[in-house]
Nucleic acid binder design. Structure first.
Lengths: 219, 219
DNA sequence: AGTATTTTTTAGGTTTGTCTAAATTTATTT
DNA sequence: AAATAAATTTAGACAAACCTAAAAAATACT
C-alpha cells in the first residue's frame, strides 16, 4: 500500500464515515466535517480521483472506490487500536483518547500496527464500542453499546465487560451474567438509573454502575 | 510550551545533537545531517531566530537558545521513550526502533508522554543506551566508556551496546548481560585482554572483543 | 595583499494544502 | 418556465518548506 499525506488520510477516513450505501457524499457535507472550505474539498477530490481513491464527477458528489475504502479502513484500524492502547494501557479516560489517536493514526508503519495489535491481544472493539477492523479491513458489524444505552425490550448479546476489577467480575459471576448471554432491558428507573433486566428468562435489577460496564451488541 | 511543526522539531533536535560547548553549528553541517540543501537551512534559521529558538548571525553559524534547548530536549525525550516502548513492549529489535520513533516523536501531547513514561516505569536509558531526559530536560550525564576502559572495581551501569550484530545480541542474551545492569571489572588478563567481571554478584570472564562493545557509565 | 576556493545567503521558483471571491451549475420557488 | 437561491467549481493568492542558480561573504592559498 502506497503512502498518503496526513491530509489525504483525513479526507479518506471522513468520507468513509459519511458515505452510506446509496447516497454520495456532498462537498458541503465533507467541508463541514473537516472544518474546511468547500473549495478545498473540490481541490482534494480532483487529487484523490487521480489516485483512483474516490469516484468523483463534478457537481455529483463522491464516494470511495474499493481501493479508497481499503485505505480508509486501515486508517480507522490504526485510530481505534491506538484508542484502545491509550485507554487500556495508559489509563486515559474514554473521552480523552480520540484527540490523541487523531495524531497517532497517521504514523505509517505496517509493522508498528501489527505489533501493537498483537500486544493488545487483537481487540475487537475500541473504548467507544466501535469495532476495530482487522488487517484485511474486516470487522464486527454493528456498534457495541453499554447496557445503559440499550433501548427497552431490545434483545442483545453481552460481548464485553469494561473496567475489569476483581469485585466487578465477582459480582457478575454471582449474578450469573456472562459474556455471550442474551439480555434485554425491561424497565428503567430514573430515580437511580438502575435497570430491570431479563436474562435467561429471569428478571433481576442491576445498578447503573454495573450496567455502564456491561457492553452489548444488537442481534 | 508552544507547538512546533515537524520540520522545526527536526531542525531543533538535530542542532542539539550537533552543537558542542564552544563551537557553533554550520549551515553545511546541518544541511548534510538533514539531507537538505544549505539554502533551506538558512531559510529555517531565520524563522527559528524570529521565534527565539536559535542564536543566529549570518555567516556565523548558530546554536540553540536556552528555550530552543528546552524544546529539543522534550523532542529527544519523546523519541527515546517511544524507542523504549517499541523495544520493550512491542518487541521491535534495536535497529528497527529509530525509524518508527522518528515519526512518533512528533505527536504532541504532554499528557501522552507523561503517561507513557509512567507506564514504562520512567526508564533512564533507551534501547541504544542513550539517556532519556525527564520532564524538566534533565538526564544522566556520565560519560560513556567501553567496559575495557573501566577501572578495576569501579561499579558502573551498562548503557549502550555497540556494533549490534545478531550474534553479539544472542551472546549477551545467553550471558544475561542486559542494558541497565550493574557491573564491575575485577581482573584484567593482559595475555588476551579478557576481563573477569562481576554481574549480579556472579563472576564471569568475557573476551576483549565483547568488552569493547559494551559501554557503561559510572555510578 | 590579492586571487582562488569554499561557505553561505539571496532571489526566485515549485509543491501541497489551504483560502477568498467570482463564476457556474443545480435545485427550488413562484 | 423564469427567477431566485443554494451548492459547487474555477481562478487566483498565500504560507510552509523545500529547491536551483547566482551573488556575496568568509576563508585559504600563493
Amino acid at each position: 500500500m502506497l503512502n498518503f499525506s496526513t491530509s489525504e488520510e483525513n479526507y479518506l477516513k471522513t468520507i468513509f464515515h459519511l458515505q452510506t450505501k446509496d447516497e454520495n457524499v456532498s462537498t458541503n457535507e465533507l467541508a463541514e466535517k473537516l472544518k474546511a472550505k468547500p473549495a478545498s474539498i473540490t481541490d482534494m477530490m480532483k487529487k484523490l480521483k487521480n489516485r483512483k481513491l474516490v469516484n468523483y464527477q463534478p457537481y455529483q458528489g463522491f464516494r470511495l472506490t474499493p481501493e479508497g475504502k481499503k485505505v480508509a479502513l486501515s486508517i480507522i484500524r490504526r485510530h481505534r487500536l491506538w484508542e484502545y492502547f491509550l485507554a487500556e494501557k495508559l489509563k486515559f479516560s474514554w473521552d480523552e483518547v480520540h484527540e490523541v489517536a487523531e495524531q497517532l493514526e497517521h504514523v505509517s508503519s505496517k509493522k508498528l500496527i501489527d505489533k501493537l495489535d498483537e500486544y493488545l491481544g487483537s481487540p475487537k472493539f475500541d473504548p467507544h464500542g466501535d469495532p476495530i477492523p482487522d488487517t484485511n479491513g474486516k470487522m464486527e458489524t454493528g456498534k457495541q453499546i453499554s447496557l445503559q444505552e440499550l433501548p427497552l425490550n431490545k434483545t442483545a448479546r453481552i460481548c464485553f465487560i469494561a473496567n475489569q476489577s476483581g469485585l466487578l467480575l465477582e459480582h457478575l459471576n454471582e449474578k450469573k451474567i456472562n459474556i455471550g448471554a442474551s439480555i434485554a432491558v425491561k424497565r428503567k428507573f430514573s430515580y437511580d438509573d438502575s435497570l430491570e433486566i431479563k436474562l435467561d428468562n429471569k428478571l433481576m435489577t442491576i445498578s447503573d454502575q454495573l450496567a455502564k460496564n456491561i457492553f452489548v451488541k444488537h442481534g
